[in-house]
Simulated assay, not measured.
Amino acid sequence: MKRRNFIKAISCMGAGSMAPILAHAAANASYPASPVRLVAPFPPGGTVDILARVVGAQLTKETSQAFIVDNRAGAGGTIGADAVARAKPDGYTILFGAAHHAIAQTVYPSLPYDIRSMTAISFLGRVDHVLLVTNKLPVKTVGELVAYLKANPDKLAYGSPGTGTLHHLMAEQFKAVTGTRMMHVPYKGSSPALVDLISGTIQVYFETMPSALQYVRNGSVRALAVTSKQRSRSLPDLPTIAESGVSNYDAASWYGLFAPSGTPASVVSALNAATTRAFANSSFVEQWRNQGAEPGGGNPDVLRKLLLSEVDRWSVVAREAKIRID
């Protein structure tokens, strides 16, 4: 609209009619005008918590407003996600979402929310998992582990940070494609599971790269392979599971920011622009990669399409493994 016509339109509408429109525009233009709550739906110390704090610190720099990490753990990440889904859709409560939320749509049949109806903001990237075993187990390769499992069905236990988490389904997928059997031991988060892996209470664990690195590097546990198709730059000498003889095995964590349904497009755009600036920052990308993560980016559709494909993919694994949480 030309400036002259715009002024004429304002005169016709009157100050009273224009007030709500101008107030709404001003609010969106200044977003964020106060601290933002970034919900990390897993306990402190795990990968989601670690990466959420890295992202929150950078978004604080990009927007000059504090992004405060709020750990709302429980039920495979669904308690935190539900808290965000119920929040006011104003951009001041957002979710550090993960692959776990795509899985939850299948394994929790009575979820009070649907992650697919939430507002996608930004794809943050992928994180490899590492197949770890306790040092007390006499295996050093994936092939040796498979042979040991076949010779000792149901004698070993694998851990996960909770039933229905990605760690759980990765192990079930591994069992299915290798024809092996292990017992599942769910924990309340990764930290206690890693403690028990080190002690030998459990023998196998599929852990995310950021959480696994310190234990692999100090020799507390033994890494056999990474779960994705490509080797990780964090552990370049470690083969993939597919390279180790389990063809077509490919799985990884992914992360993204979500907001409640109905969040204004202007707020989504502002948040997406902030993460885009973050990933254009070489020092941030280096810090991100140092945590074992590969950088993301792109518009909200990148995250939305990934979410939909992951819901479809993991629903097959969950059904075949009969994983259901009522």
Rank of each mutant, 00 (worst) to 15 (best):
V268A: 00
A98W: 06
H101G: 06
S191L: 07
R116V: 11
A29F: 07
P41L: 09
L124F: 07
A278R: 00
R72G: 03
A40D: 03
G80R: 05
P112Y: 10
L95V: 01
F279S: 13
D250C: 12
A252W: 13
V267F: 02
A33K: 07
L51A: 08
S17D: 12
T60F: 04
G200W: 09
A251T: 05
D128G: 12
W288H: 04
P192C: 08
D82Y: 06
G77E: 05
S253D: 14
V84W: 01
M18Q: 07
T106K: 10
I323R: 08
S247D: 14
G14E: 10
D70P: 07
G297A: 11
K61L: 15
I323E: 07
I50M: 14
S220M: 04
A104W: 02
M183V: 14
M183C: 08
V36A: 02
I198L: 11
L132I: 12
N135Q: 13
A27G: 08
V216F: 04
V142D: 01
H24F: 10
A102R: 02
A81M: 11
S30D: 07
I198R: 12
E320D: 15
P210A: 03
T93M: 03
L137E: 00
T208P: 00
I241H: 03
D312C: 10
T93G: 01
V204N: 03
A57E: 14
Q203I: 11
D128C: 04
A280N: 13
F258D: 07
A26M: 13
E294D: 15
T276N: 12
R3F: 14
T180E: 10
C12L: 13
T276C: 08
P89I: 01
N135C: 06
G292S: 11
S34Q: 14
L224Y: 04
K155D: 07
S244T: 08
Q291C: 11
I323S: 09
